[in-house]
């Protein structure tokens, strides 16, 4: 007897498949639980902030989804399939601290790295790829810095180079680890603008975010996290003083109503 449509498949097909779907995810670090029983279906498109105190497992969540740290339990799917099958649909921007700033690479070289998967193995970077890299640098308003060594840029400019590299991947799902940490106002403006145009083009942008005061103006969805999911949903209904207090353990003197 054939059963072509198991019941759960029918129901998920009837709706659209979420770009990112996490089920019961747990991560252990050296015997301690960094993340426990996290389940979440991302909205189809939009700008999502993952918010929580230090050590809440925000970066760990991204890394576990991407397979950079081992999962103790649980699964993560991208558009309904395992992450390793869907690498072409996602772009990851690690924390700035994770790279060697003395590296012999210019801003354009770093952006071109976003094209490497599409260029493919054994093939060199061609001049058409370089032109394309310049275009992405232009989108983050850095075209005049294309030939600057990556370490010679300011922190905000470096972050924009990384964003341009992610744009070059032409992904549907963007995962960014603290993109707004320590950047200047210009960069913040450029990044917000780029994120909005990505959302308008139908992409989902998920950022680990540390600055509670800017959540409302930049993002439309929020995930409140403290080793486990506290709340998730649209900023307007979820980012409430009550939920924030539950996330941080203490009531903060922050009034999201203003």
């Amino acid at each position: 007897m054939l059963a072509p449509f198991p019941s759960d498949r029918v129901s998920s097909d009837s709706m659209s498949i979420p770009p990112l779907s996490v089920r019961d995810l747990s991560v252990q670090y050296g015997g301690r639980t960094a993340l426990s029983g996290f389940s979440w279906d991302a909205p189809e498109r939009g700008l999502v902030a993952i918010v929580g105190p230090n050590g809440a497992g925000k970066s760990t969540l991204l890394k576990a989804v991407l397979g950079l740290v081992p999962k103790a339990r649980g699964t993560a799917e991208i558009f309904g399939r395992s992450v390793s099958d869907q690498r072409d649909l996602l772009a990851y921007v690690p924390q700035r601290a994770s790279v060697d700033w003395d590296f012999p690479a210019t801003a354009a070289d770093v952006v071109a790295m976003g094209l490497y998967r599409r260029i493919g193995w054994l093939k060199p970077v061609r001049s058409a790829d370089r032109v394309s890299a310049h275009n992405y640098l232009d989108m983050v308003r850095l075209s005049e810095f294309a030939d600057r060594q990556i370490g010679a840029l300011s922190g905000g400019q470096q972050q924009r180079v990384f964003l341009a590299r992610a744009l070059a991947q032409q992904a549907k799902l963007f995962l960014l680890d603290e993109p707004f940490a320590g950047v200047d106002a210009v960069t913040e403006g450029v990044m917000t603008e780029v994120f909005r145009s990505l959302r308008d083009a139908g992409a989902l942008v998920v950022c680990v975010h540390h600055d509670l005061s800017s959540v409302k103006e930049i993002f439309d969805h929020v995930v409140l996290l403290n080793r486990e999911l506290i709340a998730s949903g649209p900023v307007a209904t979820t980012f409430t003083p009550d939920n924030i207090a539950r996330t941080y353990g203490v009531p903060l003197s922050l009034n999201p109503g203003q």
């Binding site: 772009a91 790279v99 060697d100 590296f103 490497y116 995962l175």
Partner: peptide, 22 residues
């Protein structure tokens, strides 16, 4: 020469390379 791009990538940013399936 054949692996030049990929070797450069993992040397610059191993986490990024891993996340994108290299």
């Amino acid at each position: 020469a054949a692996l030049f791009k990929e070797l450069t990538l993992i040397s610059f940013d191993a986490d990024y390379a891993r996340a994108h399936g290299f």
